[in-house]
């Protein structure tokens, strides 16, 4: 399959240039992907920490409630006597 060598040369040069464009672009493409992943992970961790703090507060609130409950219970109990 032989065609005009000039044409072939042009085709090869174009293919090489296409690969160069891709290779130049791939770094920044991957950097962008990394950035997006990191941002979304950071957001997730932030939300989770907030939720964890709230959960801890709720749990200590429950401790207080339970304490009050048992105090009341003691009162009911002692009022029997």
């Amino acid at each position: 399959m032989m065609t005009d060598p000039q044409m072939q040369l042009a085709g090869i040069t174009q293919a090489l240039q296409g690969a160069d464009v891709y290779l130049r672009g791939v770094d920044s493409f991957l950097k962008q992907i990394d950035m997006r992943l990191q941002a979304s992970e950071a957001e997730r961790v932030k939300k989770q920490v907030e939720n964890d703090i709230e959960i801890t507060n709720i749990v200590s609130g429950m401790h207080d409630t339970a304490r009050q409950y048992f105090v009341q219970w003691e009162q009911v109990r002692s009022s029997e006597k």
Partner: peptide
């Protein structure tokens, strides 16, 4: 209290789904 704790875990789940 249980409901509120569960809600926070649901928030965590939603954050995971987003990621």
């Amino acid at each position: 209290a249980r409901g509120r704790v569960a809600e926070r875990f649901q928030n965590n789940i939603n954050a995971n789904i987003e990621v």
